[in-house]
Each structure stands twice: as structure tokens, then as C-alpha cells.
Amino acid sequence: MKYSLMLIALINITSYAENVVPATDVAVAYPTMNSLQTIENILERDVNLRISVVGQGVAPINTASPAQAYALAKRAAVADSYRLIAEKVSGVHVEGDDLIKNMMVQRSTVRTAVQAMIKNANIVETTFKDGLCEVEMEIILSHSNFSR
């Protein structure tokens, strides 16, 4: 009896081992390093990538002068431009929550976050009209920036 039980157990273990995919096979299912490299090789040598954005900023209502309103709106627009560049270069973290109760949406929340370090971005054009400031900003990415 003991030997028959042991034999059944042994057969079960070997059949289970046949079904389990080896760790190396699992790794193949994900993108390999080569395919990742081909995706990330956007920046080629001697080819520059230009990213252009238009940021918007609003002047506060209670300002001492139109010049102050312009200066403050421009600051806000520059920050918006930086954020837009960061979104394009490094991506956005998005998180969403929906609370549904009795088949009705009680609360819907979407949170987005961006974190990046932006260097050598240039302002191309600034316009200010009706309290809205628009800043066109561009950044030129080259292979040499990242190959240090």
C-alpha cells in the first residue's frame, strides 16, 4: 500500500513538472532586450529631435499694473510649457478611481503626475492677449545629450 501511494505521488509530481513552464520560457514571453532597444532607439546619431509645446498661463485679477500681470502670466505659462515637455519626454503617471454605489457613480477621480528634469529649453514666442499668456517653447534632443 505504502509503495503504491508513493508511486502515485511520484507520477503526479512528474506530470506537474511537465506542465510547469521553465523560467527561461516565461522570460521569452516578455520583450527581449533587443526589442526594447529598437523601441528606445528614437534618437539616432546626427539626427536631432525637436519637441515644441505651447504653454498657457493666466494673469491674476488683482495686479498692480498690466506689466505685472504680463510677468506673472508668463511665469505660469513657462511652467505649463515645462510640464508639457516633461509629459512628452518622460511620460505621465495616471491613476483613476471610480466609486460606484447602487449602480450609480458617486465619485470619479483621475490623478495625473509628472516628474522630470528639463534643461536647455528655449522660448520661441510669447503672446499675451485678454489676460492669457501663451508661451511657445522648444527643446532639441540629440544623441550626444544622453551618450555621456
Binding site: 515645462y82 510640464r83 515637455i85 516633461a86 509629459e87 490623478r111 495625473t112 503626475a113 509628472v114 516628474q115 522630470a116 528634469m117 528639463i118 534643461k119 536647455n120
Partner: peptide, 8 residues
């Protein structure tokens, strides 16, 4: 170069 931290 400035660090950008954006939350929405």
C-alpha cells in the same frame, strides 16, 4: 535646468 513636479 529645473526639476518639474506636476500633479493634477
Amino acid at each position: 535646468g529645473l526639476h518639474v513636479n506636476y500633479k493634477d
